[in-house]
Amino acid sequence: MLELRLVQGSLLKKVLEAIKDLVNDANFDCSATGFSLQAMDSSHVALVALLLRSEGFEHYRCDRNLSMGMNLGNMAKMLKCAGNDDIITLKADDGSDTVTFMFESPTQDKISDFEMKLMDIDSEHLGIPEAEYHAIVRMPSSEFGRICKDLSSIGDTVVISVTKEGVKFSTRGDIGTANIVCRQNNTVDKPEEATIIEMTEPVSLTFALRYMNSFTKATPLSSIVTLSLSSDLPVVVEYKIAEMGYIRFYLAPKIEE
């Protein structure tokens, strides 16, 4: 028996909007720790890891570990039917091939339930070892989103270079080149507007902008994004989900032949 009640239902709506275009089908894993997911895009270049900790739910009942295969497009369709202020409850019985989403309006005057078919998904699970990152950049998520969108109108790839001076995002395309430098700036009034760089050594890596742009669909989940970079390792783009957990995207770099 599984029953998860999330008062801030809009979080789950935002999570689905953030990942549904990257991954078609995925297994949601439910355990005492929380509600989680790990899935790769079809080309195995990018990976999304989601964790919503059990403590973040108003009610969290998961009698035994359960993996539920869902089509994310269909799940997003169902969650779109929930209001932004609705409380969302997920329910599934042991051995059932369906999951039920229940939506309650804040005033309890409208209660809906949507039942969705589960599917068997043979997904590959990757072990991601703890890594020491050469550079960690923390910046406003809206700024990062803007940069990825702007650069993708010029080129297909972005070179992210971190030095003591700041973080540089560069691209080149048929019409020309672009460089955007964000300097460390932790003297702003609001902490969510700061750009903070922790660096042990300079790093420069190339990534496909198409994926970066897809990751920025998680912007509504957090005002801050963290980029963790190391030479010859996938970048980790993390959006923290307040009081609940995180959504992390891993993207393999492009490497010169």
Binding site: E124, P129, A252, E257
Partner: peptide, 14 residues
């Protein structure tokens, strides 16, 4: 042009 790597070149399958 740089080549796109695959995640399995960095992480192992469990």
């Amino acid at each position: 042009t740089p080549l796109q790597n695959n995640l399995s070149e960095f992480y192992f399958t469990t």
